[in-house]
Amino acid sequence: MANPSTVEPTRRDMLFIATGAVAAVGAGAVAWPLVSQMNPDASTLALASTEVDISAIPEGGSLTVKWRGKPVFVRHRTKKEIDEALATPLAQLPDPQTDAARVKKPEWLVVVGVCTHLGCVPLGAPGSRGEYDGWFCPCHGSHYDTSGRIRKGPAPTNLAVPTYDFLSDTKLRIG
């Protein structure tokens, strides 16, 4: 760098390049823990499942449970709601997905209760379910149907379906 008057420019340059490269590797290796520490820690990762008793949810009713700090909607769908969901042609959907791909048992719909637009919690009480009888997000006017699929409004995708299992007819494990 500073002293041009050197005898063996190539060996000298090699040495500088090697030292610089090792310094860069070291800086990178130190940077990684600093970044990684902000990822979910081991206790957060371990808490990733929630068990829910669904025996008390009446037909047409729903339950909101907290999973990973977010609401999950468990809706006990009526025959009419299931039929609506099945009858909707895929062509009408901004994010085409069949109802069958979104449920494990037709009468139970389990979706993450977070609007895919900007993260608000959509309304789902009777009377405020939006134009498609599913959910309505009041923040920016997204309408979801009885399968939790986006039908109208700015949200780009359907409500997410978490991984879940039926431990029994009345017991659900989310996560």
């Binding site: 823990p33 990684s36 520490q37 902000m38 990822n39 820690d41 081991a42 206790s43 957060t44």
Partner: peptide
């Protein structure tokens, strides 16, 4: 980012850093 300055949680939060936080 991981520590809690409260007498009921400070000691535990330091141990949480030691055990659970990535590279804590």
């Amino acid at each position: 980012m991981h520590y809690t300055p409260h007498v009921d949680h400070a000691f535990q939060s330091v141990e949480h850093i030691m055990r659970d936080v990535n590279w804590g």
